[in-house]
Design a protein around this nucleic acid. Sequence first.
DNA 1: TAGTGGTCTAGACCACCGG
DNA 2: CGGTGGTCTAGACCACTAT
Lengths: 233, 233
Amino acid sequence: MTQPQRLSWKDVRDEIQTAILSGRYGPGARLPRDADIADHMNCARATVQRAMQDLSDSGLVERRRKGGTRVRPEPVTRATLDIPITRREVEQKGGRYGHQLIRRQERDAPRRVMASFELTAAQPMLRVEALHLSDGRPYILEDRWISLETCPEIRDLDFSEQSANEWLVLNKPYGRCDLRFYAISADSQVAALLQTAKGTALFVIERTTWIETAPITTVKAITAPGYQLLTRS
Amino acid sequence: MTQPQRLSWKDVRDEIQTAILSGRYGPGARLPRDADIADHMNCARATVQRAMQDLSDSGLVERRRKGGTRVRPEPVTRATLDIPITRREVEQKGGRYGHQLIRRQERDAPRRVMASFELTAAQPMLRVEALHLSDGRPYILEDRWISLETCPEIRDLDFSEQSANEWLVLNKPYGRCDLRFYAISADSQVAALLQTAKGTALFVIERTTWIETAPITTVKAITAPGYQLLTRS
DNA sequence: TAGTGGTCTAGACCACCGG
DNA sequence: CGGTGGTCTAGACCACTAT
């Protein structure tokens, strides 16, 4: 026997994955139930369960009670992104971090912001515009709205020492986070702040967070020219 | 007793998460070992393990044998993206899908492509430029390179029925996938193909895939104006 | 309502790695 | 080398949902 006596869940996963990718189970096909696979592979059901959990996480199969395990009908590319605090991002790239507060005002959320939060009624909010710097050069321009109902203590901060980005990430854990990526053309105001030409194509990251259903913050982060976002290594 | 006798791993996870977020364990702090937590919460160690696995996946803690479990020193926003086959994406939005082959040629990979694949030696490749359409309007412009060493059978396809995107996703499962997002300004050629004005800001998705260490394909997908990428719901 | 995945338990051994 | 997380087992019961 060249086979080890004990199968690891990764062995089970790889065997199932190979079976699927080889075409033995096409899109939408139903796999045997866990117990049968366990039996056939001579391992415990929990081991198959662990393997299936991994395949399910990676998007290759879908599992339902009573419905069984099926090969996902439409394959997708699934990727994971890590977006660090901007200060850390700059420092990790070897830059010296700085930030400037550009504007700060209290006012009710406009419709665009209400829509991001999926709110139906207006809410008092703090709007903070700030510029993150790397080695003194513009790095990211933030236009942020913070719910004063959810974060009343934010009124007492002036964001001169610590950016709103950093304070919120460290002090306001969120339960839900929506991200949105797209490109915009710099208008004259944005261009001036990012020290680039009007019309330059800029990559934008919008992030909205909630705790339970209460809105925390929504931020439009306009990155400086040349910025790229990569998937987690 | 209002407490249920049995704790689910989600209960355990939530309790640990709350303890961390409340500041009881700061960044870098070491948590008790699984066995002690299990003891303290009156559940099996495997239940704590399951909870910790989730916290580790979500990026809140880091676990090491012998080193124990520690709160991740630098918090990150971790998100998952699903990128479907372009045809499916168009159809799911209610559009009618179409695609046009623009150019197809065999040649060695240029340096830019070799760099994407982390190759040191040039390799014969098939370059395919194609336009994906939604209701007859430009949707995504693809500039794709496919390794002929890894995918020799691609020579026999003409991509009139099925796009290279779809054929590859269905027939060439990858082991590794790198993604890169950024913005570009449309040059006159791109602008013409996407039927927009020169200088328009466009969102770009670059994707490179390998099987083991063998390159499969790298594609620069230039999206039409207004395109947005969202995190998985 | 019956079949299937989801989870919990208690115990055991292993693999990694910090001191 | 010893402490810690990683995994496997065998069995049991629960929860969801397709039929």
